[in-house]
Deep mutational scan, measured.
Amino acid sequence: KELVLVLYDYQEKSPREVTVKKGDILTLLNSTNKDAWKVEVDDRQGFIPAAYLKKL
């Protein structure tokens, strides 16, 4: 599985998104959309803007 590093805090703005903190390391589920990547956070799945993430 692929991991990503969170570069900036992000507060979810819709039910399809998830809230993350800078420095979190998350499982990347889908990065086919260049604008928003799907990740898993504490058994929740949701989207975060790709600009907030860096592949490890």
Rank of each mutant, 00 (worst) to 15 (best):
T19S: 14
K21W: 08
K55I: 13
A51I: 14
K13I: 07
E2W: 12
I48E: 03
S31Y: 08
W37A: 00
V39S: 00
V4D: 00
K21E: 04
L53W: 01
Q11N: 14
D42V: 08
K34H: 11
E17W: 10
A50E: 05
L28D: 00
V6L: 01
D43F: 09
D9P: 05
K34I: 11
G23R: 01
E12N: 07
K55R: 11
A51Y: 13
S31V: 05
F47G: 02
V41F: 10
L28T: 01
T27W: 12
A36Q: 14
E2C: 15
G23N: 05
K1M: 10
L28E: 00
V6S: 00
K38P: 02
K13F: 09
V18M: 13
L5R: 06
K55S: 06
V18S: 02
V39C: 06
V6F: 01
D24S: 11
Y10N: 03
V41P: 01
T32K: 10
V41S: 09
T19W: 05
L3R: 10
L26G: 06
K34N: 12
K54A: 11
N33V: 05
N30I: 07
Y8D: 11
A36V: 15
Y8K: 14
I48K: 01
L5Q: 07
V39F: 03
L26S: 00
T27C: 10
K22G: 05
V39D: 00
K54N: 06
L28H: 01
V20H: 03
N30M: 08
A36S: 14
L56C: 13
V39L: 02
A36C: 15
P15F: 08
P49S: 04
D43E: 11
G23H: 04
L56G: 01
Q45K: 09
T32Q: 12
G46V: 15
R44G: 06
Y52A: 09
K55E: 06
T27H: 10
A51C: 15
Y8I: 09
K13V: 08
P49E: 04
L53H: 02
K21H: 10
L7D: 00
F47H: 06
L56I: 13
K38I: 15
L28Q: 01
L7H: 00
G46L: 15
Y8P: 00
G23M: 03
T27V: 15
L7C: 08
Y52V: 13
P15Y: 08
V39Y: 02
D9S: 08
N33F: 10
L7Q: 02
Y10G: 01
E17F: 08
D42G: 15
V18A: 05
P49T: 04
L5W: 05
L29V: 11
Y10E: 00
F47W: 15
E17D: 07
D24A: 11
A51T: 12
V4A: 07
V41C: 09
K1S: 09
L26Y: 04
S31C: 14
D9L: 04
G23D: 04
E40L: 13
V4K: 01
K54I: 13
K22T: 06
I48H: 02
V6Y: 00
K22C: 08
Q11F: 14
N30D: 15
D24P: 01
L29Q: 02
Y52G: 05
D9I: 04
D43H: 11
V18N: 03
K34C: 14
K13Y: 06
N30G: 07
L5C: 12
V41E: 01
K34R: 11
S14C: 11
K55N: 05
L7P: 00
L28K: 00
L53T: 02
L26I: 12
S14E: 09
L28S: 01
Y10D: 01
K22I: 04
D35R: 12
T27P: 09
T19H: 05
K1V: 13
Y52R: 03
E40G: 07
K1A: 11
R44W: 15
K13W: 07
L29G: 01
R44E: 05
L53F: 02
E40A: 13
D42T: 07
L28F: 02
N33L: 10
